[in-house]
Design a protein around this nucleic acid. Sequence first.
DNA 1: ACGCTCCATGTGACCGTTCACATCGCGAGA
DNA 2: TCTCGCGATGTGAACGGTCACATGGAGCGT
Lengths: 360, 360
Amino acid sequence: MVSPACVTVNMPRSIEVAVPEPSQEPPKGRAPSIRDVARVAGVSHQTVSRVLNHHPSIRPETKQRVLDVMAELQYTPNRAARALVTSRSRTIGILSASSTHYGPASSIAAIEAAARASGYWVSTANIESSDAVSIADGLAYLRAQGIEGLVVIAPQVRVFDTLAQLSIDVPYVTLQSTGRDPEHTLSVDQIAGARMATRHLIERGHRSIYHLAGPQDWIEAEARMRGFLDEMGAQDVPTTAPILGDWTADFGFYAGRELLTVRDFTAIFASNDQMALGVMHAVRDAGLEIPRDVSIIGFDDIPEAAHFWPPLTTVRQDFAELGRRCVALLLGDLDDAAPEYRGTIVPELIVRDSVGAPSF
Amino acid sequence: MVSPACVTVNMPRSIEVAVPEPSQEPPKGRAPSIRDVARVAGVSHQTVSRVLNHHPSIRPETKQRVLDVMAELQYTPNRAARALVTSRSRTIGILSASSTHYGPASSIAAIEAAARASGYWVSTANIESSDAVSIADGLAYLRAQGIEGLVVIAPQVRVFDTLAQLSIDVPYVTLQSTGRDPEHTLSVDQIAGARMATRHLIERGHRSIYHLAGPQDWIEAEARMRGFLDEMGAQDVPTTAPILGDWTADFGFYAGRELLTVRDFTAIFASNDQMALGVMHAVRDAGLEIPRDVSIIGFDDIPEAAHFWPPLTTVRQDFAELGRRCVALLLGDLDDAAPEYRGTIVPELIVRDSVGAPSF
DNA sequence: ACGCTCCATGTGACCGTTCACATCGCGAGA
DNA sequence: TCTCGCGATGTGAACGGTCACATGGAGCGT
């Protein structure tokens, strides 16, 4: 990956714009304020404020004059002052775990883009371990920031406990799948995706399938597991207990190695692509071939999945769209407008080469 | 990866703490302020402020009383008010590209953690394309946020131009390798890492080595390329022109395929692990084996690299440490303390199975 | 015993914005 | 013609902290 290497700090080279004509604005140390603009434009500070807030009753001529002065003075509204008086920070908080993974990272990027487009700011708190203290720290950090909304990309069960405990009461969005509270639910089920994946394996003839699940307190993990179990049940295939992992390739590797000592299965459905990769590694290490001896299917379609060996069959999620809708929903809520994103994002089965017919 | 699925918004469940005794603080709509605390504690607002700022001359007894009241009232200092009067946002901006990749994502997470530990906030602007407009947008966004320092994880050449253009004059840290401005430089060279990788290939007997570089306006990419060229020169190995890529596995795949039509090489040094993965894919598709027919080495040691087929020999970077030092340097600078992190983070060669002796 | 310093604390202004309210024309309805 | 209403603008007070300065004792050297 693009990796930083060496660090250089550079002092500000304050660019002195030599103004030839002695204009009337005093070059104070501070940045120009609304009153500076007002003075130069020959209006009151309130008029400037109105321009800033797109107030309807302002003469176009006046408005233009103010805008011109703003540009001339390189005026930037002071976020702190505004937040102080409105007591609105226009900031959305993200509580995230595993932010170095593709899924969360993509979601975060999409959320940030969507928020920025709507004039909101984003503040992220990454938690390393998912213990209560770490979660509480993250939430306290976000609370101190005065967030107006919260997106949770983390083990949610614990987060909600902590949320209540800290008595943080902002609207929150959680990227989850359980269909309760349908009023506020986007119904893209991971369940559907997981069922797709499972069905794909069954259709190819597999009957002994293991599921490598994610951490049990992640609702996503739970949903995929449920999708797996639902589909297995629906198709009358005997079910084995899912193995609870931690989303990492390392875990997939060790779990795969363990599983292979028995070898009572023909296919594995991993709850994400990284774990699938680890399993593939273990399978090859055991001298077996994919998909001849073992079929493997993943979840997420990370950009690398197409280049695994063999290229991984998986379920694609549109993280960017997810992030966008998530913000739309939160902002629709915040700004009291009707959220328009109630539709469904359909996950998509991406068939590549890691699934074949069972060998026995 | 951990992937969000379905979105649910939940309204705040405002937790009413039923206070039995009618205490003297009025339950106004707003959060308690410094003056509310002062009133209850029987001191002046300024005393409360002093407690907040760890002012030395305060009687321990008074201090404790104030702290108690703060806890009782669940007082949280208002960031906006503080920022307004001090005109310091205590926010560090990150301008990042490819933030979904492991390296940048890890750096961001580390920066955020380090900043949080120092009482700073972090604001990230992700740019999707690296054109000037996109960069300018990102910087404007950060500027509006009132950032006090800037970390650039992006194509730096262009960023600096834009920086000057927008006349943003905050101290900045760039994760870079060129050794100019040694006063402010951490000397971990990517160059060293790249030389290690190259030397490893040469020592194994390779003489025809291609380098798959990153985008030319990323200083990291440039540094690795320079390291490659330096080592090749030092060892008197004839050099071929590096191929400029875009950090993605897809690019590695196509470049590899292209290269294999000629097949005038025995090893490839990819500038990051993703591109290395793509190349591996292309090599296998051509019916060749790694490392028997072609040796491949990467850069970064992403967590998945150990599970590639074959496990990838690569150069490990400690992104977390990098992020920490980066913040230390920036903050040392900001707070006018002597930065202690002038030392060197040594990249480490991780030998796995993707490099062997040349086949011809 | 006097003045000086320093510690602990209080007072009021100010940061840059928005909010509530006041003001001033001007055209329309009576 | 008088007034009412509304559009366009101005005035002053918040918001919740920090800063500069003032104040009143205690400690202390002479």
